[in-house]
């Protein structure tokens, strides 16, 4: 399983994330950003009203996020779309993640090593992308 390390510094920079899910217009997307830290889970961002993005969401201050695990989970429901689309939707699904406030601002994509599965019929897709917030020296 793929966990990407995003480098943050021991400072007061605000760390932000935004997510863009690129699929067929008719897909209903439910996506969340969860932060696991100190044995707790907190919701940091979510897609609203079936939309295909999570707007810029603050994760907190860099020095308080050290060793946090970030999970971006998306459920994609294709029920409004013709079934003949479903296979192409799974194949062509593209998710872009943008993290900023750390050592460098950086874009990431959903890659084959990440979690991406569909139902047997193909009408529902689940994706998961993990980031580990690793503290590095300035």
């Amino acid at each position: 399983m793929n966990v990407v390390k995003y480098q943050i510094e021991d400072n007061s920079n605000e760390i932000n994330i935004s997510v863009n899910i690129i699929t067929a217009d008719g897909a209903l997307v439910t996506a969340d950003v969860d932060l696991y830290i100190n044995d707790k889970k907190s919701l940091k961002g979510e897609s609203k009203n079936g939309e295909h993005y999570i707007g810029k969401s603050s994760l907190g201050i860099a020095k308080e996020l050290t060793n946090g695990l970030l999970l971006i989970e998306a459920d994609i429901d294709l029920k409004l779309i013709e079934e003949s689309f479903w296979e192409d939707c799974f194949k062509n699904l593209s998710i872009k993640y943008f993290l900023n406030g750390g050592k460098v601002d950086k874009s990431f994509e959903l890659v084959p090593e990440d979690i991406k599965y569909k139902s047997d019929l193909g009408g529902t897709i689940k994706t998961k992308k993990y980031f580990f917030l690793k503290q590095v020296k300035s």
Binding site: I22, T23, A27, E51, H52, D88, C89, N92
Partner: peptide, 20 residues
């Protein structure tokens, strides 16, 4: 547009023709 991969931003609001 949908058979071949597209990098355009997708939107359920556009599909349903409703306001955000």
């Amino acid at each position: 547009f949908w058979t071949f991969k597209s990098d355009s931003t997708s939107s359920i609001h556009k599909y349903l023709n409703i306001r955000k």
